[in-house]
Amino acid sequence: MIIESPRFPPLLSGEVVPPHTDPFDKAVSRAIAGVDSGTIFYSEAVDTLRAALVLAPETPLEEAIQAVYVAQIGLAESLGALAPPEVPVQFQWPDRIKVNGALCGSVRFAADVSDPKETPNWLVIGIVVPFTHPGGEPGETPDQTCLYEEGCVEIMPMALLESWSKHTLLWLTYFLDSGFERVHNEWRPRCDTIGKRIEEPRAGLFVGLDEKGRMLLRQDVMTETVSLIDYAEHL
């Protein structure tokens, strides 16, 4: 099978990783070494899209981490552009992507600092989207799905990657120009657990997000904030 290389928009560039190499791990190692911001590392596997974007934030981590929502919106919009129109794409905080109500991918993120007030040298945001089931028969895991099972058989991983890069760059521009509010307004309607009681990642009533992108979780009369930073991968 001939795999066409994805075309990335200006300001972004791509670097394919060897088979059996995790693009996220590669992105982190290259970020530590000082790779250019805007580099996307990706795998050419046909069963799962795995890719990771390296950013060099100029703001404290508590603001920079909001780019995770940008990457989620980019993925939802790219799926919306390529998938059949009746296929809904939703989010489950902090890092899950849902298609037709079932889990169908996730985002990953890591930075070189964990203090919310400290500005990271780099932030890596990765996506994982299954096109086929890794094992078992369709329907065996009703809470999980894959794109092909949801009627997205015309979508190719590299086409989705190309689209994700374009939509993510567009929303990064919005984010940098006007802050988190516009990102929040786009993200919120796609999250299907806001206003509901949840058990994961913590039990309580998911009220929404605050102005810093932190989860507002109500337990009895108390409302606590939970940051995306708590779910970054520790390296």
Score class of each variant (00 low, 15 high):
residue 1 M to N: 06
residue 2 I to W: 09
residue 2 I to N: 09
residue 2 I to Q: 14
residue 3 I to T: 03
residue 3 I to F: 00
residue 5 S to C: 02
residue 7 R to P: 01
residue 7 R to I: 11
residue 10 P to L: 06
residue 10 P to R: 08
residue 11 L to H: 10
residue 14 G to E: 09
residue 18 P to F: 01
residue 19 P to C: 07
residue 20 H to G: 00
residue 20 H to Y: 06
residue 22 D to N: 15
residue 22 D to H: 09
residue 25 D to H: 13
residue 25 D to E: 11
residue 27 A to P: 09
residue 28 V to P: 03
residue 29 S to W: 02
residue 30 R to Q: 10
residue 31 A to Y: 04
residue 32 I to T: 15
residue 33 A to I: 02
residue 34 G to W: 12
residue 35 V to L: 09
residue 41 F to M: 09
residue 42 Y to D: 00
residue 43 S to T: 03
residue 43 S to G: 10
residue 49 L to E: 06
residue 50 R to W: 05
residue 50 R to E: 09
residue 52 A to L: 11
residue 58 E to A: 11
residue 60 P to A: 07
residue 62 E to D: 05
residue 63 E to K: 15
residue 64 A to P: 03
residue 65 I to S: 13
residue 68 V to N: 11
residue 70 V to M: 07
residue 71 A to H: 05
residue 73 I to D: 02
residue 74 G to V: 10
residue 76 A to M: 11
residue 76 A to E: 11
residue 78 S to A: 14
residue 78 S to P: 04
residue 78 S to E: 01
residue 78 S to D: 03
residue 80 G to I: 02
residue 80 G to N: 05
residue 80 G to Q: 02
residue 81 A to S: 14
residue 82 L to Y: 01
residue 86 E to A: 04
residue 86 E to R: 01
residue 87 V to L: 12
residue 89 V to S: 06
residue 90 Q to H: 15
residue 90 Q to R: 15
residue 91 F to H: 02
residue 94 P to C: 05
residue 95 D to L: 12
residue 97 I to A: 06
residue 103 L to E: 15
residue 105 G to C: 13
residue 106 S to M: 07
residue 106 S to L: 05
residue 107 V to E: 01
residue 109 F to N: 02
residue 112 D to L: 01
residue 114 S to N: 07
residue 115 D to Y: 05
residue 116 P to M: 13
residue 116 P to N: 14
residue 117 K to V: 06
residue 117 K to L: 14
residue 118 E to C: 04
residue 120 P to F: 08
residue 120 P to W: 08
residue 120 P to Q: 12
residue 121 N to Y: 02
residue 121 N to T: 15
residue 124 V to A: 08
residue 125 I to C: 11
residue 126 G to W: 07
residue 126 G to N: 12
residue 126 G to R: 12
residue 130 P to V: 04
residue 132 T to E: 12
residue 132 T to W: 00
residue 133 H to D: 04
residue 133 H to N: 07
residue 133 H to I: 06
residue 134 P to W: 08
residue 136 G to W: 15
residue 137 E to G: 04
residue 138 P to T: 05
residue 142 P to N: 13
residue 142 P to H: 09
residue 143 D to Q: 07
residue 144 Q to K: 12
residue 146 C to Y: 02
residue 148 Y to P: 04
residue 149 E to F: 08
residue 149 E to Q: 13
residue 153 V to Y: 02
residue 153 V to P: 01
residue 154 E to A: 14
residue 162 E to D: 07
residue 163 S to N: 00
residue 163 S to V: 00
residue 166 K to A: 08
residue 166 K to Y: 01
residue 169 L to C: 06
residue 171 W to H: 14
residue 174 Y to T: 05
residue 174 Y to E: 05
residue 175 F to C: 05
residue 176 L to V: 10
residue 179 G to A: 13
residue 180 F to A: 07
residue 181 E to S: 13
residue 184 H to S: 03
residue 185 N to L: 05
residue 188 R to K: 10
residue 190 R to T: 06
residue 191 C to S: 06
residue 195 G to W: 11
residue 196 K to G: 04
residue 197 R to E: 14
residue 198 I to H: 12
residue 198 I to L: 14
residue 199 E to A: 14
residue 201 P to S: 14
residue 201 P to N: 10
residue 204 G to A: 14
residue 205 L to Y: 10
residue 207 V to S: 10
residue 209 L to Q: 08
residue 212 K to S: 15
residue 212 K to C: 13
residue 213 G to A: 14
residue 214 R to H: 08
residue 215 M to F: 00
residue 216 L to A: 00
residue 217 L to K: 10
residue 217 L to T: 12
residue 224 E to T: 11
residue 229 I to V: 08
residue 230 D to Q: 15
residue 234 H to N: 14
